[in-house]
């Protein structure tokens, strides 16, 4: 029989690995979400009718479908069509696709909130439209979007738990395995909840700080 200490060391190791993958999924999909979200927001705000229509459609579809459905389409559906994703890459791809839709809307509202004069002044000062976007418009739009992006990040961390359904090796998936081998179900799920609290609460505090700063 293994001792209690060994058992708990095993628990902590497994959960730490789960936490590591949770953070990897979160970080990669957050970066992709913001990058593509920015691109889509610019295309939707400044683009022609076709690009506005296409991106509008993309945003509606990916905001209306549950992450679980998108994970299943990527992981099971596309595998059947010959395109194989690993659980980890399916989770990252799915969350990035959904995130791009949400971040597009967040950043677009940042663009809408900008005064027209900023762009006009930048153009009048001799910047090209591209430079105006890069140096004047986007930095300001992103700054106004920061609190909402923070809130989105919290949602994203929570959504990584859904990737356990396609066996992505994150916290909840590890916990389910531990629960089935040890039967200490109640304690294990409490620890899982605690881990999520510990990661999300600092971000929530940061968002609160940003909001207060923006309100002044």
């Amino acid at each position: 029989m293994e001792s209690d200490i060994e058992k708990y060391v095993h628990y902590v190791t497994v959960m730490t690995e789960g936490l590591y993958y949770c953070l990897v999924i979160t970080a990669v999909s957050f970066v992709c979400s913001v990058l593509f979200g920015t691109l889509f927001a610019v295309l939707r705000h400044y683009g022609n009718r076709l690009s506005r229509l296409l991106i509008g459609g993309y945003v509606e579809v990916f905001r209306a479908m549950p992450p679980l459905t998108i994970f299943f389409i990527l992981y099971f559906g596309l595998a059947h069509a010959g395109l194989h994703f690993s659980p980890l890459s399916a989770a990252i791809t799915g969350l990035s696709m959904i995130g791009a839709a949400y971040c597009c809307e967040i950043i677009r509202s940042g663009l809408v909130a900008l005064k027209k004069g900023d762009r006009e002044a930048a153009l009048a000062a001799g910047l090209t439209p591209n430079q105006a976007l890069r140096f004047i418009i986007l930095p300001q739009a992103l700054r106004t979007s920061l609190p909402s992006l923070g809130t989105y990040l919290i949602g994203l961390i929570k959504d990584t738990s859904i990737a356990s359904a396609i066996a992505a090796p994150e916290i909840l998936f590890r916990a389910r395995n531990l629960a089935s081998e040890s039967f200490e179900t109640t304690a294990i799920y409490l620890v899982v909840a605690l881990v999520y609290l510990v990661i999300t609460i600092p971000i929530a505090v940061g968002v609160g700080y940003l909001e207060k700063k923006a309100g002044r």
């Binding site: 738990s161 859904i162 999300t200 929530a204």
Partner: peptide
Amino acid sequence: SIPTLVLLF
């Protein structure tokens, strides 16, 4: 802060 799926489980 707790994911809905964790609450569900």
